[in-house]
Design a protein around this nucleic acid. Structure first.
Lengths: 228, 228
DNA sequence: ACAGGCATTATGTCTAGACATATTAGCCAA
DNA sequence: TTGGCTAATATGTCTAGACATAATGCCTGT
C-alpha cells in the first residue's frame, strides 16, 4: 500500500478541514511530511502544489506553507462556443449575420480595449438561433490591426470560432450583468422591451494588441452554470 | 542557458498557435520532445501537464497527445465573500438579518439539494449593505442535519463566512441568470418592481450531505467579473 | 468475419539526489 | 534606531532511471 500524491493531497486537506492545521497556521515542511508519509519530497511537493493552485494553502519560499485564512472558493467557467452550447442542448444551431461593416468604435468599447477614441473597427452583429428561436444576440467589435490576414467571410464561419482557432488569445476578462432589454434587443430576440436579460461582456487581448469586445444578450431564462 | 518547464510550455504553445501542430493533430511524444529540447522527460511532462490543465491539449495513455480541436477558454471566478467584496470597493459593510427560522423547504430547493420534499430547513434572509445602501439580497436554506453543532448566532457572524471556515465544503455549483425583481426584492433592495436583477444561485454539498442553497439578488448595475 | 486475448507503447507517477531562488531573521555598522 | 548585508532555510525545479497503467491494435482461434 504505497501512497500517491493524490492520497497525500487528500490527507493534508483532511487535516486542514479538521482544524488540526488551523487557518493562517503553518503546516510542516515538505521534508518533514515526506518522512511522515514515507514518500519522496517530490511527491509531497506535487500534492502541495495542487492544493496551492486550488487556493487552499499559500506557499512562500523560506517562509513555508500556511493554510489560507479564508479559503477562496474558485469556480471554473468553460466559456462555451455558442454553436456547441446549442447543439449540447439538443437543438439545431443556426445564426444570422445582421451587420458587418467598418465603423468608429464608441467610447465604452475603445476605453475597455485601451484604444484611441473612435478607432475604426469592424462591427459585427449576429443573432444566434437555437431550434429556430432566438438564443443570443451578439454585438462584436473587432480590431483589424490585431488580426492575421486574410480574415474569412464571417457569414459562413462564426467570428468566435475563427478567433479561438486562429488567433493567439493571451488574456481577457468576462463580466456578467443584468440589464433591461433595449428596443433593439427586444426586437431581435422577440421579447418585451424592458425584459430582464443576462448580459455577458468580454474583452480579449492577444500578442498583437487588443482584439475584440463582445456583448452577448441572452434570451430570457438563460443560465450560465459553473461548478467547483 | 538551460530550459525550464515554462520555456517548454511556451514553445509548445507557440508551435500550436502557429499551426505547426494543427488542431486535432498528434504532437511528438514526451521522450522525443525531451531529446529535442535537451531536458529530462519529467520536465517535458510538467510542461504538457500544465497545457492539458489549461485545455490546450488532450492527453491519453498509449494514444499520445493531441492538440485540442476547439481550445476551450476557461475563466476562473473567485467567489467573493460579500463583506470583503464590499470593503474592496472602499465602502462600509453592514448587514441586516431579516429572517431566521425553521421552515419546510420549497420544492425547487429540495430538488436541487437532493433532499426529500418539504424537509425542515433553516431559512435565513439577509440584506447586505454597502455604504449604507442595499447591495445584495440573500435568501439561504441551510440543512441542519449536515452542520456541526453548535451553530453560531448568524445575527453577528454571516452564515457564509462561518460556513467557509467551519464546514468541509466538497463541491457545488453556481449559476448566473437575470430576472425581473419580485415585489419582495424590489421592496428590500429599494428598486422598481420588474427591474432587471443579476441573480446568482449556489448549491453546496459537503461530506455530511447537501449543505445549503443560496440565492443572491444583486442591486442593479452589479457586475460579476472574471479573468482568463 | 469476428471475438477475445495479449503485446506494445505513451503517458502517469515515483524515487533520490542535486542545485536554484526567494525570503526571512539576525547581525553589524552608521 | 535604522539601514543594509549575510547566512540560513523552505520551496521550486531539474535529472536519470524505474515501474504502473491504460489504450491500441495486432494476432489468433473459432
Amino acid at each position: 500500500m504505497t501512497l500517491g500524491w493524490e492520497d497525500i493531497r487528500a490527507d493534508v486537506l483532511r487535516r486542514i478541514r479538521s482544524r488540526e492545521w488551523p487557518p493562517g497556521g503553518l503546516i510542516p515542511g515538505e521534508e518533514t511530511l515526506a518522512v511522515e508519509f514515507g514518500v519522496a519530497r517530490a511527491t509531497v511537493n506535487r500534492a502541495l502544489t495542487a492544493l496551492a493552485e486550488a487556493g487552499v494553502i499559500e506557499r512562500k519560499k523560506r517562509a513555508g506553507t500556511r493554510v489560507a485564512e479564508l479559503p477562496v472558493r474558485r469556480a471554473r467557467l468553460e466559456i462555451p462556443v455558442i454553436r456547441l452550447d446549442v447543439l449540447g442542448r439538443g437543438l439545431a444551431y443556426d445564426f444570422k449575420l445582421l451587420a458587418d461593416r467598418m465603423a468608429p468604435a464608441p467610447v465604452p468599447v475603445t476605453a475597455r480595449l485601451g484604444l484611441p477614441e473612435a478607432t475604426p473597427m469592424r462591427y459585427l452583429e449576429t443573432l444566434h438561433l437555437a431550434g429556430g428561436r432566438p438564443f443570443v444576440h451578439e454585438v462584436r467589435w473587432l480590431n483589424p490591426a490585431a488580426l492575421p490576414t486574410p480574415t474569412p467571410d464571417f457569414a459562413t464561419t462564426s467570428a468566435n470560432e475563427w478567433l479561438v482557432t486562429h488567433v493567439s488569445l493571451v488574456s481577457g476578462d468576462i463580466a456578467f450583468l443584468a440589464e433591461a432589454a433595449s428596443p433593439r434587443e427586444a426586437e431581435v430576440l422577440g421579447v418585451a422591451p424592458g425584459a430582464a436579460l443576462l448580459i455577458a461582456e468580454r474583452t480579449t487581448h492577444g500578442t498583437l494588441g487588443p482584439i475584440t469586445f463582445v456583448r452577448l444578450a441572452h434570451a430570457p431564462g438563460h443560465r450560465v452554470a459553473m461548478t467547483f
